[in-house]
């Protein structure tokens, strides 16, 4: 059950000021550092990032071409990702975008693939793949070798994903219309990415309706499904293989609690990862032994959308 906290005058005041449901702000006060700065940051347009598609071009070449068009880019923690500081036109309307030289993708989202540590020739499962941003990054990190099985239950979203795969020149991937919970019939994989469907608390800056559109029951529903999906992810990983679990939620029930519960049940190790803030080691009366190795990304600290990443070794 999603943990609720007694409402406080501070939580009520912040909820009123920024237009949130009070239960949500009461929870943020328990697990988000520097809440007021966080809420202020969520009111601002998020920084836009572009990820260079190294299947088609190189970072310095793309950087030069975009700068000639008046873009100003700045480097990030990942070599193929740039923050867009100035854009004379929509970053989704340039010739280079149409030709698939880059993809618009938040830095935090790329971190899930960084944690996956893919190698050329591997067999990879992406359990909830559309619209394909992480899938295409995996493909380029594998040098378009090996194979990626991408699962997406919605045909419409799969079609949209196929446009992205085609535009970016990916040929090591197939898209199957399948729920990630049914993945056990697909065999075993060297790497498994589970970017789990979640309550999306981390993208409130992009979608402010999330301030009031979800309820504690949604967190419960998501966490229950996430546990089942992570179990499947670990079962389909080869022994010694890596499973990356990620969400764009801040809710501990969808993050540290899911990882702790499944890792303990299936005997998986949670490995440290060198980016972001350390995950929570407790929430309410729950303790998370594995929390310190998980990672959180906060908009006001990392200038990304809110994100959670855990790397598990099967």
């Amino acid at each position: 059950m999603a943990l609720l906290f007694p409402q406080s005058p501070r939580a009520d005041a912040l909820a009123r000021k920024y237009g949130y449901d009070p239960w949500l702000v009461s929870r943020f006060l328990q697990y988000v550092p520097d809440v007021e700065r966080f809420l202020e940051k969520m009111e601002k347009k998020p920084t836009q990032y572009i990820r260079v598609n190294t299947i088609k071009t190189d970072a310095p070449i793309l950087e030069r071409r975009l700068e000639e068009k008046g873009f100003a880019l700045s480097p990030t923690a990942l070599p193929e990702v740039f923050a867009v500081e100035k854009a004379p036109m929509s970053a989704g309307a340039t010739t280079e975008y149409m030709l698939g030289h880059y993809y618009l993708q938040d830095l935090s989202s790329c971190m899930a693939v960084e944690a996956l540590d893919v190698k050329e020739g591997q067999k990879v499962l992406d359990m909830a793949a559309a619209p394909g941003g992480k899938t295409t990054l995996i493909a380029q990190r594998m040098g378009n070798t090996g194979c990626i099985i991408a699962l997406e239950p919605s045909e419409k979203r799969a079609r949209s994903m196929s446009f992205n795969l085609a535009r970016l020149g990916v040929f090591n991937t197939c898209v199957c219309r399948m729920d990630g919970l049914d993945a056990e019939r697909l065999g075993r994989f060297d790497r498994v990415l589970l970017d789990a469907p979640c309550s999306c608390e981390g993208v409130i800056a992009k979608d402010p309706t999330r301030k009031t559109s979800h309820a504690p029951e949604d967190v419960d529903y998501c966490s229950s499904r996430q546990e089942k999906m992570l179990e499947v992810a670990l079962r389909v990983a080869k022994p010694g293989g890596i499973v990356v679990y990620s969400t764009c939620s801040f809710a501990p029930e969808e993050n540290e609690a899911v990882v702790e519960s499944v890792a303990q049940r299936l005997g998986a190790a949670v490995e440290p990862f060198g980016h972001g803030e350390q995950g929570l080691d407790s929430f309410g009366d729950r303790k998370f032994k594995t929390g310190k190795n998980t990672r959180r990304f906060y908009p006001h600290l990392h200038d990304t959308t809110g994100f959670f990443v855990a790397r598990l070794r099967a």
Partner: peptide
């Protein structure tokens, strides 16, 4: 166009899209 690994993996699956 597919990789040899994808060609092998896709046998028995019914993908909506496969390769380029």
């Amino acid at each position: 166009l597919v990789t040899p690994e994808l060609e092998a993996a896709v046998a028995g699956l019914e993908p909506l899209y496969c390769g380029l």
